[in-house]
Simulated assay, not measured.
Amino acid sequence: MPIAEALVAMTHSSVLTADAVSVDYPITPDWPWQRAGRLRAVHKASLSLTAGETLGLVGESGCGKSSLARALTGLAPVTGGQVRLDGQTMRFDRRAATRALRRDVQMIFQDPLASLDPRMTIAQIVAEPLAILRGDIDKAERRRRVIAMLERVGLTRAQMGRYPHEFSGGQCQRVGIARALVVEPRVLICDEPVSALDVSIQARILDLLAELQREMDIAILFIAHDLAVVRQISDRVRVMYLGAPMEEAPAAALFDQPKHPYTKALLSAVPRPDLAAERARRRIRLHGELPSAADPPSGCVFRTRCPWAQADCGARVPEWRALGGSSVACHHAEAIAAGTLDRSA
């Protein structure tokens, strides 16, 4: 089934839908004789999120994960395609018309401290979204909601007057979570929310997110580099490379039986606790660097680093199609899975 038709079929159950979303950034030339260009950060990405589920988004740095997340929240320009909330198109260029829609999609950022205004107390930080997006509630109700949300994320009323620099990284991230959830959104975009935290703090933040998701029935898009974290928290996982989707599957299926060569390479780089198994396994090594998004390869964007690349991989873009319970964009996924296609390295 084509992507557009599949998305239409899922609209009735999807909270947030991205339909062929593209994000391009202009490249300004350094010299007058140079030509202006465009950097293709995300190219025709389509996905859907349903209430109460978590979609993990993985891929190496520069693959477009954060650009897609920011496009879904209106923080990056959507240069192609549409973002829909409950089937209604979100037009980020018309602030007044989409304010109610924007309230339902909130974001948690990677750096806990840098995402908070150092001149504001945490009470002011958490109250700000209410003041901007919930003009229908008075000041007393706003304060009550701020106190309730801070306590919900493990902070106390006595800490309300403190500034971000007076808190640890984990506490600052709790403030960021409180700020995102105080307006009671339906979708939460988490852009590597635990990557800057210690492992023990990561576990607490992940447990907190899972608990709040159950209570509020929130759909979560969770971006991370740590595949162990993604496997723990996600219902489904999507793999991106150079702005394009490579594979999507239920978390257990993707980690146990990856279909796409890039997914296989990512998982083979994860160390195993069993030393004997770690020494015995054959890694899939990717040679070279990630190509420039300003000049992506023709056909399959992964072909320049793919150990199974064939001549036809550069001739046409692989179709996004179903394969054994997964969705994959690879011309030779069946042959790779069956072991009938030899790899070059």
Results as ranks from 00 to 15, higher is better:
Thr11Lys: 15
Ile233Phe: 08
Arg283Met: 09
Ile201Val: 15
Leu150Tyr: 00
Ile177Val: 11
Met216Arg: 11
Gly288Ile: 01
Glu128Phe: 08
Ile189Thr: 13
Leu290Ser: 06
Gly74Phe: 05
Ser13Pro: 03
Glu151Arg: 15
Arg282Leu: 11
Leu75Arg: 04
Phe222Tyr: 15
Thr156Leu: 06
Gln110Lys: 08
Leu49Pro: 06
Trp308Ile: 01
Gln159His: 01
Ser327Trp: 08
Ile201Tyr: 05
Ala219Asn: 07
Thr89Tyr: 00
Arg94Cys: 01
Lys65Asp: 06
Leu341Glu: 00
Ala36Cys: 01
Pro258Trp: 05
His260Ala: 02
Glu5Asn: 12
Val21Phe: 09
Thr156Ala: 13
Asp217Pro: 02
Arg143Leu: 10
Pro261Lys: 10
Pro26Trp: 08
Val187Tyr: 07
Ala309Thr: 09
Ile147Ala: 08
Cys330Thr: 03
Trp33Ala: 02
Ala345Tyr: 13
Pro118Glu: 07
Leu101Gln: 15
Thr54Tyr: 01
Ser61Phe: 11
Lys264Gly: 00
Pro297Tyr: 05
Arg231Ala: 12
Ser168Gly: 06
Ala253Asp: 09
Pro250Val: 03
Val126Ile: 03
Pro296Asn: 13
Gln202Gly: 08
Arg134Ala: 06
Pro258Ile: 09
Gly170Asp: 09
Glu166Ser: 12
Leu227Gly: 08
Arg99Phe: 04
Cys190Thr: 12
Val78Phe: 06
Val239Gln: 10
Thr79Val: 08
Ile201Arg: 00
Glu192Pro: 14
Asp312Tyr: 02
Ala4Phe: 13
Leu275Phe: 12
Phe302Glu: 02
Asp136Gly: 05
Gly299Pro: 00
Met107His: 07
Ile336Ala: 12
Gln171Met: 13
Val15Trp: 10
Arg144Glu: 10
Ile177Ser: 03
Glu53Ile: 03
Val58Glu: 15
Lys139Val: 13
Ala294Pro: 10
Ala131Phe: 00
Ala71Phe: 06
Trp308Arg: 12
Ile205Gly: 07
Trp308Phe: 14
Arg103Lys: 15
Cys306Ala: 11
Pro307Gln: 03
Ala45Pro: 02
Asp295Gln: 10
Ser13Ile: 12
Cys63Trp: 14
Leu208Tyr: 04
Cys190Trp: 11
Ala244Thr: 14
Val105Leu: 04
Val183Phe: 06
Asp138Thr: 09
Ala309Leu: 05
